[in-house]
Nucleic acid binder design. Structure first.
Lengths: 187, 187
DNA sequence: TTATTGTTTCAGAAATTTCTGAAAGTTCAG
DNA sequence: CTGAACTTTCAGAAATTTCTGAAACAATAA
Protein backbone atom coordinates (compact mmCIF):
# COMPACT_ATOMS: atom_id res chain seq x y z
CA UNK A 1 0.00 0.00 0.00
CA UNK A 2 1.29 3.41 -1.01
CA UNK A 3 0.12 6.80 0.20
CA UNK A 4 -0.38 8.66 -3.05
CA UNK A 5 -1.90 12.16 -2.93
CA UNK A 6 -5.21 10.75 -4.11
CA UNK A 7 -5.39 8.15 -1.39
CA UNK A 8 -4.12 10.61 1.19
CA UNK A 9 -6.84 13.15 0.48
CA UNK A 10 -9.51 10.50 0.69
CA UNK A 11 -8.22 9.06 3.93
CA UNK A 12 -7.82 12.42 5.62
CA UNK A 13 -11.18 13.66 4.54
CA UNK A 14 -12.86 10.49 5.68
CA UNK A 15 -11.18 10.99 9.02
CA UNK A 16 -12.69 14.43 9.39
CA UNK A 17 -16.09 13.27 8.29
CA UNK A 18 -15.90 10.27 10.54
CA UNK A 19 -15.93 12.35 13.66
CA UNK A 20 -19.35 13.63 12.60
CA UNK A 21 -20.70 10.16 12.27
CA UNK A 22 -19.94 8.85 15.70
CA UNK A 23 -16.37 7.66 15.47
CA UNK A 24 -13.17 9.63 15.90
CA UNK A 25 -10.71 10.78 13.32
CA UNK A 26 -8.33 7.87 13.67
CA UNK A 27 -11.10 5.32 13.37
CA UNK A 28 -12.31 7.05 10.22
CA UNK A 29 -8.86 7.11 8.69
CA UNK A 30 -8.18 3.49 9.47
CA UNK A 31 -11.49 2.45 8.01
CA UNK A 32 -10.93 4.53 4.88
CA UNK A 33 -7.55 2.88 4.44
CA UNK A 34 -8.95 -0.61 4.82
CA UNK A 35 -11.78 0.12 2.41
CA UNK A 36 -9.62 1.30 -0.45
CA UNK A 37 -6.84 -1.20 0.03
CA UNK A 38 -7.30 -4.32 -2.04
CA UNK A 39 -4.79 -6.17 0.11
CA UNK A 40 -5.25 -6.70 3.84
CA UNK A 41 -2.94 -4.44 5.89
CA UNK A 42 -1.15 -5.14 9.16
CA UNK A 43 -1.37 -2.89 12.20
CA UNK A 44 2.19 -1.61 11.95
CA UNK A 45 1.72 -0.61 8.35
CA UNK A 46 -1.46 1.28 9.28
CA UNK A 47 0.41 3.19 11.97
CA UNK A 48 3.17 4.02 9.52
CA UNK A 49 0.93 5.04 6.64
CA UNK A 50 -1.20 7.28 8.84
CA UNK A 51 1.66 8.56 10.96
CA UNK A 52 -0.03 7.69 14.24
CA UNK A 53 1.02 5.62 17.23
CA UNK A 54 0.75 1.90 17.33
CA UNK A 55 -1.47 2.07 20.40
CA UNK A 56 -3.89 4.36 18.67
CA UNK A 57 -4.17 1.91 15.79
CA UNK A 58 -4.92 -0.87 18.20
CA UNK A 59 -7.72 1.10 19.81
CA UNK A 60 -9.11 2.10 16.45
CA UNK A 61 -9.16 -1.47 15.20
CA UNK A 62 -10.85 -2.56 18.40
CA UNK A 63 -13.56 0.03 17.84
CA UNK A 64 -14.05 -1.00 14.23
CA UNK A 65 -14.15 -4.60 15.38
CA UNK A 66 -16.95 -3.85 17.81
CA UNK A 67 -18.83 -2.40 14.87
CA UNK A 68 -18.07 -5.59 12.93
CA UNK A 69 -16.48 -3.60 10.16
CA UNK A 70 -13.12 -5.37 9.97
CA UNK A 71 -12.08 -8.80 8.91
CA UNK A 72 -8.90 -10.28 10.37
CA UNK A 73 -6.80 -12.64 8.32
CA UNK A 74 -3.39 -14.29 8.47
CA UNK A 75 -0.72 -15.04 5.94
CA UNK A 76 0.67 -18.59 6.04
CA UNK A 77 3.77 -18.75 8.21
CA UNK A 78 3.25 -15.24 9.66
CA UNK A 79 2.06 -14.54 13.13
CA UNK A 80 0.84 -11.00 12.77
CA UNK A 81 -2.71 -10.17 11.81
CA UNK A 82 -3.85 -8.50 8.63
CA UNK A 83 -6.93 -6.34 8.55
CA UNK A 84 -9.42 -5.66 5.83
CA UNK A 85 -12.79 -3.95 5.59
CA UNK A 86 -15.73 -6.26 5.86
CA UNK A 87 -19.01 -6.20 4.01
CA UNK A 88 -20.27 -3.76 1.44
CA UNK A 89 -20.54 -0.01 1.72
CA UNK A 90 -24.21 -0.62 2.39
CA UNK A 91 -23.34 -2.78 5.34
CA UNK A 92 -21.10 -0.11 6.70
CA UNK A 93 -23.81 2.54 6.38
CA UNK A 94 -26.20 0.21 8.17
CA UNK A 95 -23.77 -0.33 11.02
CA UNK A 96 -23.37 3.39 11.41
CA UNK A 97 -27.13 3.90 11.53
CA UNK A 98 -27.60 1.12 14.00
CA UNK A 99 -24.79 2.25 16.25
CA UNK A 100 -26.05 5.78 16.28
CA UNK A 101 -29.56 4.64 17.05
CA UNK A 102 -28.35 2.65 20.02
CA UNK A 103 -26.27 5.51 21.34
CA UNK A 104 -28.49 8.47 20.61
CA UNK A 105 -32.08 7.52 19.97
CA UNK A 106 -32.77 4.73 22.44
CA UNK A 107 -31.67 6.55 25.61
CA UNK A 108 -33.51 9.66 24.50
CA UNK A 109 -36.70 7.79 23.75
CA UNK A 110 -36.51 6.13 27.12
CA UNK A 111 -36.08 9.45 28.90
CA UNK A 112 -38.91 11.07 26.99
CA UNK A 113 -41.19 8.16 27.79
CA UNK A 114 -40.40 8.51 31.47
CA UNK A 115 -41.23 12.18 31.38
CA UNK A 116 -44.50 11.47 29.61
CA UNK A 117 -45.51 9.10 32.40
CA UNK A 118 -45.00 11.73 35.08
CA UNK A 119 -47.88 13.74 36.41
CA UNK A 120 -47.67 17.38 35.34
CA UNK A 121 -47.33 19.55 38.43
CA UNK A 122 -48.67 22.70 36.83
CA UNK A 123 -49.73 24.30 33.59
CA UNK A 124 -46.16 24.88 32.47
CA UNK A 125 -45.28 21.22 32.85
CA UNK A 126 -48.44 20.21 31.07
CA UNK A 127 -47.40 22.27 28.08
CA UNK A 128 -43.88 20.88 28.24
CA UNK A 129 -45.25 17.36 28.24
CA UNK A 130 -47.28 18.07 25.16
CA UNK A 131 -44.20 19.21 23.30
CA UNK A 132 -42.13 16.35 24.62
CA UNK A 133 -44.76 13.91 23.39
CA UNK A 134 -44.47 15.41 19.91
CA UNK A 135 -40.73 14.95 19.94
CA UNK A 136 -41.08 11.43 21.24
CA UNK A 137 -43.49 10.48 18.50
CA UNK A 138 -41.26 11.92 15.84
CA UNK A 139 -38.15 10.15 17.09
CA UNK A 140 -40.03 6.91 17.51
CA UNK A 141 -41.31 7.13 13.96
CA UNK A 142 -37.88 7.82 12.57
CA UNK A 143 -36.40 4.99 14.59
CA UNK A 144 -38.97 2.43 13.58
CA UNK A 145 -38.79 3.52 10.03
CA UNK A 146 -35.03 3.32 9.66
CA UNK A 147 -35.20 -0.08 11.31
CA UNK A 148 -37.69 -1.27 8.76
CA UNK A 149 -35.45 0.07 6.03
CA UNK A 150 -32.54 -1.85 7.46
CA UNK A 151 -34.51 -5.06 7.31
CA UNK A 152 -35.16 -4.61 3.60
CA UNK A 153 -33.03 -6.54 1.16
CA UNK A 154 -30.29 -4.51 -0.54
CA UNK A 155 -32.10 -4.82 -3.86
CA UNK A 156 -35.33 -3.40 -2.49
CA UNK A 157 -33.45 -0.68 -0.72
CA UNK A 158 -31.79 0.21 -3.96
CA UNK A 159 -35.12 0.36 -5.71
CA UNK A 160 -36.37 2.68 -3.02
CA UNK A 161 -33.31 4.89 -3.25
CA UNK A 162 -33.49 5.11 -7.00
CA UNK A 163 -37.10 6.10 -6.64
CA UNK A 164 -35.95 9.43 -5.25
CA UNK A 165 -38.60 12.06 -5.67
CA UNK A 166 -40.81 9.34 -7.06
CA UNK A 167 -41.61 8.57 -3.46
CA UNK A 168 -44.36 11.14 -3.65
CA UNK A 169 -46.01 9.36 -6.53
CA UNK A 170 -45.79 6.01 -4.85
CA UNK A 171 -47.51 7.48 -1.84
CA UNK A 172 -50.44 8.78 -3.82
CA UNK A 173 -50.75 5.30 -5.15
CA UNK A 174 -50.39 3.83 -1.70
CA UNK A 175 -53.10 6.08 -0.32
CA UNK A 176 -55.60 4.35 -2.55
CA UNK A 177 -54.19 0.93 -1.84
CA UNK A 178 -54.09 1.31 1.94
CA UNK A 179 -56.68 4.06 2.03
CA UNK A 180 -59.19 2.12 4.08
CA UNK A 181 -56.83 2.38 7.06
CA UNK A 182 -57.09 6.18 6.95
CA UNK A 183 -53.47 7.00 7.81
CA UNK A 184 -54.33 10.62 8.55
CA UNK A 185 -56.12 9.62 11.71
CA UNK A 186 -53.10 7.76 12.99
CA UNK A 187 -51.12 11.00 13.18
CA UNK B 1 -40.50 29.76 33.40
CA UNK B 2 -39.53 27.47 36.26
CA UNK B 3 -36.86 24.79 36.27
CA UNK B 4 -38.73 21.83 37.72
CA UNK B 5 -36.95 18.45 37.85
CA UNK B 6 -38.96 17.30 34.84
CA UNK B 7 -37.96 20.24 32.70
CA UNK B 8 -34.42 20.08 33.96
CA UNK B 9 -33.95 16.46 32.97
CA UNK B 10 -35.33 17.13 29.52
CA UNK B 11 -33.19 20.18 28.95
CA UNK B 12 -29.98 18.54 30.13
CA UNK B 13 -30.55 15.40 28.16
CA UNK B 14 -31.34 17.37 25.05
CA UNK B 15 -28.09 19.21 25.58
CA UNK B 16 -26.14 15.97 25.59
CA UNK B 17 -27.96 14.63 22.57
CA UNK B 18 -27.56 17.88 20.76
CA UNK B 19 -23.82 17.56 20.55
CA UNK B 20 -24.35 14.39 18.52
CA UNK B 21 -26.54 16.16 16.05
CA UNK B 22 -24.16 18.88 15.04
CA UNK B 23 -24.71 21.57 17.64
CA UNK B 24 -23.06 21.95 21.02
CA UNK B 25 -24.48 21.33 24.46
CA UNK B 26 -25.47 24.92 25.14
CA UNK B 27 -27.28 25.26 21.84
CA UNK B 28 -29.17 22.06 22.56
CA UNK B 29 -30.17 23.23 26.02
CA UNK B 30 -31.30 26.62 24.83
CA UNK B 31 -33.35 25.08 22.07
CA UNK B 32 -34.90 22.58 24.45
CA UNK B 33 -35.86 25.41 26.75
CA UNK B 34 -37.43 27.44 23.99
CA UNK B 35 -39.35 24.44 22.70
CA UNK B 36 -41.02 23.56 25.96
CA UNK B 37 -41.67 27.09 27.10
CA UNK B 38 -45.06 28.36 26.09
CA UNK B 39 -43.96 31.95 26.74
CA UNK B 40 -41.06 33.58 24.90
CA UNK B 41 -37.97 33.90 27.11
CA UNK B 42 -35.38 36.67 27.26
CA UNK B 43 -31.64 36.07 27.04
CA UNK B 44 -30.93 36.89 30.66
CA UNK B 45 -33.52 34.44 31.85
CA UNK B 46 -32.04 31.73 29.65
CA UNK B 47 -28.60 32.33 31.15
CA UNK B 48 -30.04 32.20 34.64
CA UNK B 49 -32.19 29.11 34.12
CA UNK B 50 -29.35 27.18 32.52
CA UNK B 51 -26.64 28.55 34.79
CA UNK B 52 -24.41 29.64 31.91
CA UNK B 53 -22.81 32.93 30.98
CA UNK B 54 -24.64 35.64 29.18
CA UNK B 55 -22.10 35.57 26.35
CA UNK B 56 -22.62 31.90 25.81
CA UNK B 57 -26.35 32.45 25.48
CA UNK B 58 -25.75 35.12 22.90
CA UNK B 59 -23.61 32.78 20.82
CA UNK B 60 -26.09 29.97 21.17
CA UNK B 61 -28.98 32.12 20.03
CA UNK B 62 -26.94 33.33 17.11
CA UNK B 63 -26.31 29.74 16.07
CA UNK B 64 -29.96 28.82 16.42
CA UNK B 65 -30.82 31.92 14.45
CA UNK B 66 -28.58 30.84 11.60
CA UNK B 67 -30.53 27.59 11.59
CA UNK B 68 -33.74 29.60 11.53
CA UNK B 69 -35.00 27.86 14.62
CA UNK B 70 -35.80 30.87 16.77
CA UNK B 71 -38.35 33.58 16.58
CA UNK B 72 -37.56 36.94 18.14
CA UNK B 73 -40.36 39.01 19.63
CA UNK B 74 -40.77 42.11 21.77
CA UNK B 75 -43.09 43.10 24.54
CA UNK B 76 -44.65 46.53 24.17
CA UNK B 77 -42.60 49.15 25.98
CA UNK B 78 -39.64 46.79 26.55
CA UNK B 79 -36.41 47.00 24.68
CA UNK B 80 -35.02 43.53 25.30
CA UNK B 81 -35.73 40.68 22.98
CA UNK B 82 -37.73 37.57 23.76
CA UNK B 83 -36.96 34.28 22.08
CA UNK B 84 -39.17 31.39 21.14
CA UNK B 85 -38.78 28.23 19.10
CA UNK B 86 -39.98 28.53 15.58
CA UNK B 87 -41.87 26.04 13.45
CA UNK B 88 -42.93 22.50 14.27
CA UNK B 89 -40.79 19.65 15.51
CA UNK B 90 -40.85 18.44 11.93
CA UNK B 91 -39.38 21.70 10.79
CA UNK B 92 -36.65 21.41 13.34
CA UNK B 93 -35.79 17.87 12.25
CA UNK B 94 -35.66 19.09 8.68
CA UNK B 95 -33.31 21.90 9.58
CA UNK B 96 -31.03 19.49 11.32
CA UNK B 97 -30.99 17.18 8.32
CA UNK B 98 -30.36 20.01 5.94
CA UNK B 99 -27.64 21.56 8.04
CA UNK B 100 -25.87 18.28 8.43
CA UNK B 101 -26.13 17.61 4.73
CA UNK B 102 -24.54 20.93 3.96
CA UNK B 103 -21.76 20.43 6.44
CA UNK B 104 -21.03 16.75 6.00
CA UNK B 105 -22.35 15.38 2.78
CA UNK B 106 -21.80 18.14 0.25
CA UNK B 107 -18.07 18.66 0.86
CA UNK B 108 -17.53 14.93 0.90
CA UNK B 109 -19.42 14.38 -2.32
CA UNK B 110 -17.42 17.13 -3.92
CA UNK B 111 -14.12 15.62 -2.82
CA UNK B 112 -15.12 12.15 -3.96
CA UNK B 113 -16.17 13.52 -7.33
CA UNK B 114 -12.79 15.19 -7.73
CA UNK B 115 -11.01 11.97 -6.96
CA UNK B 116 -13.15 10.10 -9.43
CA UNK B 117 -12.11 12.54 -12.15
CA UNK B 118 -8.42 11.95 -11.56
CA UNK B 119 -6.47 9.54 -13.66
CA UNK B 120 -5.46 6.46 -11.69
CA UNK B 121 -1.65 6.29 -11.56
CA UNK B 122 -1.47 2.57 -10.93
CA UNK B 123 -3.44 -0.54 -10.13
CA UNK B 124 -3.80 0.39 -6.46
CA UNK B 125 -5.33 3.74 -7.30
CA UNK B 126 -7.64 2.15 -9.81
CA UNK B 127 -9.00 -0.13 -7.12
CA UNK B 128 -9.30 2.78 -4.70
CA UNK B 129 -11.26 4.72 -7.29
CA UNK B 130 -13.67 1.85 -7.73
CA UNK B 131 -14.40 1.80 -4.02
CA UNK B 132 -14.62 5.56 -3.82
CA UNK B 133 -17.16 5.53 -6.63
CA UNK B 134 -19.29 3.08 -4.64
CA UNK B 135 -19.21 5.37 -1.62
CA UNK B 136 -19.98 8.37 -3.76
CA UNK B 137 -23.01 6.69 -5.29
CA UNK B 138 -24.33 5.65 -1.92
CA UNK B 139 -23.93 9.09 -0.39
CA UNK B 140 -25.45 10.71 -3.43
CA UNK B 141 -28.43 8.41 -3.24
CA UNK B 142 -28.95 9.08 0.42
CA UNK B 143 -28.62 12.80 -0.13
CA UNK B 144 -31.06 12.95 -3.01
CA UNK B 145 -33.44 10.74 -1.21
CA UNK B 146 -33.56 12.68 2.03
CA UNK B 147 -33.98 15.82 -0.05
CA UNK B 148 -36.96 14.37 -1.79
CA UNK B 149 -38.38 13.38 1.59
CA UNK B 150 -37.93 16.92 2.79
CA UNK B 151 -39.93 18.25 -0.11
CA UNK B 152 -42.88 16.02 0.77
CA UNK B 153 -45.79 17.56 2.62
CA UNK B 154 -45.93 16.80 6.34
CA UNK B 155 -49.05 14.72 5.84
CA UNK B 156 -47.44 12.53 3.22
CA UNK B 157 -44.34 12.20 5.30
CA UNK B 158 -46.46 11.09 8.18
CA UNK B 159 -48.18 8.50 6.03
CA UNK B 160 -44.79 7.23 4.95
CA UNK B 161 -43.54 7.11 8.53
CA UNK B 162 -46.60 5.31 9.78
CA UNK B 163 -46.11 2.80 7.03
CA UNK B 164 -43.10 1.46 8.90
CA UNK B 165 -42.33 -2.08 7.88
CA UNK B 166 -45.13 -1.72 5.37
CA UNK B 167 -42.53 -0.11 3.16
CA UNK B 168 -41.61 -3.58 1.99
CA UNK B 169 -45.16 -4.25 0.87
CA UNK B 170 -45.41 -0.94 -0.92
CA UNK B 171 -42.26 -1.79 -2.80
CA UNK B 172 -43.57 -5.10 -4.02
CA UNK B 173 -46.50 -3.17 -5.26
CA UNK B 174 -44.26 -0.53 -6.77
CA UNK B 175 -42.27 -3.17 -8.59
CA UNK B 176 -45.35 -4.05 -10.57
CA UNK B 177 -46.32 -0.46 -11.02
CA UNK B 178 -42.93 0.73 -12.21
CA UNK B 179 -41.79 -2.72 -13.25
CA UNK B 180 -41.33 -1.82 -16.89
CA UNK B 181 -38.43 0.38 -15.88
CA UNK B 182 -36.59 -2.64 -14.45
CA UNK B 183 -35.15 -0.97 -11.36
CA UNK B 184 -32.65 -3.82 -10.86
CA UNK B 185 -30.71 -2.66 -13.90
CA UNK B 186 -30.39 0.84 -12.51
CA UNK B 187 -28.28 -0.42 -9.62
C1' DT C 1 11.75 -22.40 29.77
C1' DT C 2 13.26 -18.44 27.10
C1' DA C 3 13.43 -15.51 23.13
C1' DT C 4 10.83 -13.50 19.61
C1' DT C 5 7.16 -11.29 17.45
C1' DG C 6 3.29 -9.47 17.87
C1' DT C 7 -1.04 -7.00 20.46
C1' DT C 8 -3.36 -4.33 24.21
C1' DT C 9 -3.74 -1.18 27.95
C1' DC C 10 -3.74 3.05 30.21
C1' DA C 11 -1.69 7.24 32.61
C1' DG C 12 -0.45 11.38 31.33
C1' DA C 13 0.44 14.76 27.25
C1' DA C 14 -1.39 17.21 23.49
C1' DA C 15 -5.01 19.02 20.83
C1' DT C 16 -9.49 20.58 20.38
C1' DT C 17 -13.77 22.38 21.78
C1' DT C 18 -16.57 25.02 24.66
C1' DC C 19 -17.39 28.62 28.07
C1' DT C 20 -16.69 32.84 30.67
C1' DG C 21 -16.80 37.62 31.57
C1' DA C 22 -15.15 42.09 30.77
C1' DA C 23 -15.06 45.38 27.25
C1' DA C 24 -16.99 47.15 23.12
C1' DG C 25 -21.07 47.86 20.47
C1' DT C 26 -26.03 49.14 19.63
C1' DT C 27 -30.33 51.41 20.25
C1' DC C 28 -33.26 54.62 21.87
C1' DA C 29 -35.52 58.06 25.18
C1' DG C 30 -34.96 62.44 26.82
C1' DC D 1 -25.51 64.47 22.91
C1' DT D 2 -25.83 61.52 27.13
C1' DG D 3 -26.98 57.75 29.78
C1' DA D 4 -29.56 53.53 30.48
C1' DA D 5 -30.71 49.01 28.94
C1' DC D 6 -29.55 45.60 26.40
C1' DT D 7 -26.53 42.59 23.03
C1' DT D 8 -22.28 40.91 20.92
C1' DT D 9 -17.48 39.87 20.66
C1' DC D 10 -13.38 37.60 21.67
C1' DA D 11 -9.02 36.44 24.37
C1' DG D 12 -7.94 33.45 27.52
C1' DA D 13 -9.64 29.71 30.99
C1' DA D 14 -11.75 25.40 31.63
C1' DA D 15 -13.39 21.09 30.18
C1' DT D 16 -13.33 17.41 27.13
C1' DT D 17 -11.54 14.43 23.75
C1' DT D 18 -7.95 12.19 21.48
C1' DC D 19 -3.26 10.43 21.10
C1' DT D 20 1.22 8.67 22.54
C1' DG D 21 4.45 5.39 24.04
C1' DA D 22 6.19 2.50 27.51
C1' DA D 23 4.92 -1.39 30.07
C1' DA D 24 2.12 -5.43 30.45
C1' DC D 25 0.30 -9.20 28.12
C1' DA D 26 -0.21 -13.23 24.61
C1' DA D 27 1.20 -16.73 21.52
C1' DT D 28 4.45 -19.57 19.54
C1' DA D 29 8.88 -21.82 18.27
C1' DA D 30 12.91 -23.86 19.71
Amino acid sequence: MQMTPMIESFVYHFGEMGSRWGFNRTVGQIYALLVISEQPVCANEIAELLGISRGNVSMGLKELGSWQLVQVSHKPGERREFYHSRGSIWDMANRVFEERRKREMDPTLSLLRDIMMDEAANQEEAYAQKRIAEIHDLLENITEWTQSLQSLSPEKLNTLMKLGSGVGKVLEFTDKFLGKKDPAKQA
